Computed example of a mutant assay.
Amino acid sequence: MAFSKDGVNFKVIPKMMVEYNAYRSSVFPKSSDGEHINFGAVVATKNGVFTYREFQLSKKKMDEALAK
């Protein structure tokens, strides 16, 4: 997963959402406030299993990472 403020320069999060047997995934924003962005994700594996996950990213940490 990667994020960007300008749509050109991206920072990549090094930890993979799925490490093995990954086929396709879709990540979408659910809500946002002044401090966090909440996401949902549908992850499909090669054996046909679909799972749903939710996660949260800190806006402060994203801004700090983009400033480097």
Results as ranks from 00 to 15, higher is better:
16 M>C: 02
50 F>N: 12
4 S>G: 07
43 V>F: 05
37 I>E: 11
26 S>F: 12
62 M>P: 04
49 V>D: 07
61 K>V: 01
35 E>R: 13
42 V>R: 14
61 K>R: 13
22 A>H: 10
18 V>F: 04
15 K>N: 10
2 A>C: 06
55 F>S: 05
5 K>W: 02
21 N>E: 07
49 V>H: 05
64 E>C: 00
20 Y>W: 04
3 F>T: 03
19 E>Y: 04
55 F>P: 07
49 V>S: 03
4 S>C: 06
60 K>W: 01
21 N>Y: 04
23 Y>P: 00
20 Y>R: 14
16 M>G: 09
11 K>V: 14
28 F>P: 08
56 Q>H: 00
56 Q>Y: 00
25 S>C: 07
3 F>N: 05
10 F>I: 05
11 K>P: 00
67 A>Q: 13
33 D>H: 07
58 S>K: 10
25 S>V: 01
5 K>R: 12
60 K>P: 01
60 K>N: 10
64 E>W: 01
54 E>Q: 15
47 N>G: 03
31 S>D: 14
4 S>T: 13
40 G>S: 12
55 F>E: 04
30 K>S: 09
36 H>S: 12
38 N>K: 14
46 K>R: 13
50 F>I: 02
6 D>N: 15
35 E>T: 12
16 M>K: 14
25 S>N: 14
50 F>H: 09
17 M>E: 08
54 E>W: 03
29 P>V: 14
51 T>W: 01
49 V>A: 06
29 P>N: 11
10 F>Y: 15
21 N>M: 05
44 A>Q: 09
66 L>K: 04
46 K>V: 08
26 S>D: 09
